[in-house]
Write a protein that binds this DNA or RNA. Structure first.
Lengths: 223, 223
DNA sequence: GCGCCGCGCCAGATGTCCTTTCCGGCGATT
DNA sequence: AATCGCCGGAAAGGACATCTGGCGCGGCGC
């Protein structure tokens, strides 16, 4: 999933440069030069992170304003006006999560954006997506085209292993070793039986066959 | 409440200086020069934040090690060896939440520590809400759909842990470790009987089942 | 000291899942 | 097309996890 970043920076060249770069790096970018528009966008779009060019906006963003309902807890990084550490300290004390001086190295800013997003969305979800199948390892829930599917413990572990590398073929020995912990060979019927049940449970539409057998080798997820 | 900071820094002068300063600023400080001791302290003391002097420890801290059970999600700030921005980028990419170069300004480091603690304990508010269940950790009162429920100390702690991340599945070992402080495995009956009692007490309506068992794994709050 | 309560633990009952077995059918090879 | 090995699906027994009522202990208030 793409993260939406709001860039509130009055200086046109920097703003456009950041917009371009961040889009290249896979973010949804909204940008504005005006303070009032920044707050309006924060309310309307609810960005995942805000890149601020001005310190006073930081306080307003954190404090909130009457009648406005943006997320006052949104992650914020401030682009301080100079390289003076005091300015970074001031920003951090006024509620910014991070602050970089100018001129800044884009690579470092990008790394800081990613680190902050990582921290603030931690434990939100741990999704493994393979085609139409979504596996949430935190809640251990599985959805096929938004239809929830109830799996047993082994079935879940088996699907998780297959979904971790969709299309790849896993040998039976591999699956028995990694999902069951079996060292010896020969208990393939156990695996086949589970694969069969998993295939059936994942069958939401009539033609669905997500768990695919590869003759003489093993199984894979998705054709 | 004081926050505990683990300072893992091989250079003696820096380590002692940081320890002194941070204590003055109201932190509980543990420090060590040795890597193995840093991991041991992370496990035993469970600090609220780690100040790292070496990059490789960052990865080990995040990845975890067999048999060790510290909080792999603990906030981490790296003291990079020089002022080279690339070193900061590398640290951030390897899982650190923040990175400052050397020499560093203590004031900025302090501000960054505070900002990171602010962000990472943001969810630890007084009122924990999970669906129809409201837990007030200050008064230790619990309400299910506005109906007050009386819980014992352990039941409250168990519910609090479950409610801190509703829908997430907790393994039994995890709950026994985090709620009871047990290290060894095998005392699952104790947990099960508390889970059972908690489930019963939270049952306000006839069909309520907030404490849900996940077969072969553990428990979660809410379906 | 006495009663009450919470806690940890136990054991029987209950329920779920895993494995194995059987059989029919398909794929590959000749 | 025949044969052999491999696989899918269903069903059943056994294995294992879980629920729950109850018991003894220890702490606390009276």
């Amino acid at each position: 999933m793409q993260s939406a970043v709001l860039v509130a920076e009055p200086e046109p060249e920097t703003r456009e440069y950041l917009g371009r770069q961040l889009r290249v790096d896979g973010f949804d970018v909204l940008d504005t030069a005006r303070r009032s528009e920044a707050l309006e966008l924060a309310e309307r779009v609810r960005p995942d992170l805000v890149l601020l060019g001005e310190l006073d906006l930081c306080q307003r963003l954190r404090r909130g304003e009457p009648g406005r309902t943006w997320d006052r807890n949104v992650p914020v990084i401030l682009l301080a006006p100079t390289s003076d550490p005091d300015e970074r300290v001031r920003a951090l004390e006024r509620g910014a999560d991070d602050a970089v001086g100018r001129p800044f190295a884009y690579e470092e800013l990008l790394a800081r954006i990613r680190a902050l997003l990582r921290r603030s969305t931690a434990s939100a979800t741990e999704l493994v997506v393979a085609g139409d199948i979504v596996v949430d390892r935190r809640t251990r829930r599985v959805a096929v085209r938004d239809a929830l599917v109830a799996l047993s413990a082994r079935e879940f572990e088996l699907l998780l292993r297959l979904a971790s590398e969709p299309y790849r073929v896993f040998t039976k020995e591999e699956l028995l070793r990694e999902v069951w912990g079996y060292r010896a060979v020969g208990r393939t019927r156990t695996l086949e039986s589970h694969a069969s049940r998993l295939r059936k449970k994942l069958r939401v539409g009539p033609d669905d066959d997500f768990v695919v057998n590869v003759w003489g080798v093993g199984y894979r997820l998705l054709e």
